Simulated scan of single mutants.
Amino acid sequence: MTRTTVTTENAPAPAAPLSQGIRKGGLLQVSGQLPLDPDTGETVGTTVAEQTAQALRNVTAVLKAGGAGLADVVMLRVYLTDPAHLAGMNEAYAAAVGEPFPARTTVYMRLPPGLLVEIDALAVLDD
């Protein structure tokens, strides 16, 4: 089974040695997406809700490039910088992802200044 790199101009280009996504067989792993505008590289929004929406748009763009969509996602991992942001993230997340929700893990970590959230995804495709 071949491992295929997934790339799209509709999500920010990685600034580190990683791929936007990797597909192997029916699995598609999307690397952590930050709330960056893919055209400018600038942070989108100052609230966790705004940044969550942008990070999920970036995740969705990579999923699409790999032949998947949010309905194929079985696991999302959300990285927040502050536990106080959980409610705002949950609200934006629920609106963007919709039911039935995939499994999810939320952890807290340090991100570069101004960034409040990062999200990665694991999708399973039928082929």
Rank of each mutant, 00 (worst) to 15 (best):
M1A: 13
M1G: 07
R3C: 05
T5H: 10
V6G: 14
T8H: 13
E9A: 14
E9Q: 14
E9F: 10
A11T: 08
A11Y: 09
A13V: 15
P14M: 05
P14A: 02
P17V: 06
L18T: 07
S19G: 11
S19Q: 15
S19M: 11
Q20Y: 03
G21W: 04
I22A: 11
I22R: 12
I22Q: 08
I22M: 08
R23Y: 06
K24T: 13
G26S: 10
L27N: 08
V30F: 02
V30L: 09
S31M: 02
Q33W: 01
L34G: 04
L34R: 14
L34Y: 14
L34S: 09
L36D: 12
P38E: 08
E42N: 00
V44H: 08
G45C: 06
T46N: 09
T47H: 13
Q54A: 15
A55M: 04
A55K: 12
A55T: 02
A55V: 01
L56W: 01
R57K: 11
R57Y: 01
N58A: 09
N58E: 06
V62K: 03
K64L: 06
G66K: 04
G67V: 03
A68K: 06
A68P: 10
A68M: 07
A71D: 15
A71L: 01
D72C: 05
V73L: 11
V73S: 10
V74M: 04
V74E: 15
L76Q: 12
R77I: 14
V78T: 15
Y79V: 14
L80N: 08
T81E: 05
T81S: 13
T81D: 02
D82H: 10
P83A: 09
P83I: 05
A84P: 03
H85C: 01
L86C: 04
A87Y: 02
N90Y: 01
E91P: 04
E91L: 00
E91G: 04
A92I: 07
A92T: 12
A95H: 09
G98Y: 06
E99F: 10
P100K: 03
F101Y: 13
P102D: 00
A103R: 15
R104E: 14
T106V: 15
V107H: 09
V107D: 11
R110S: 07
R110T: 06
L111G: 04
L111M: 14
P113S: 13
P113N: 12
L116A: 08
V117E: 07
V117Q: 00
E118F: 05
I119D: 02
D120Q: 12
A121L: 09
A121S: 06
A121K: 05
L122F: 02
L122V: 15
A123L: 07
A123S: 07
V124A: 05
V124C: 01
L125W: 05
D126V: 00
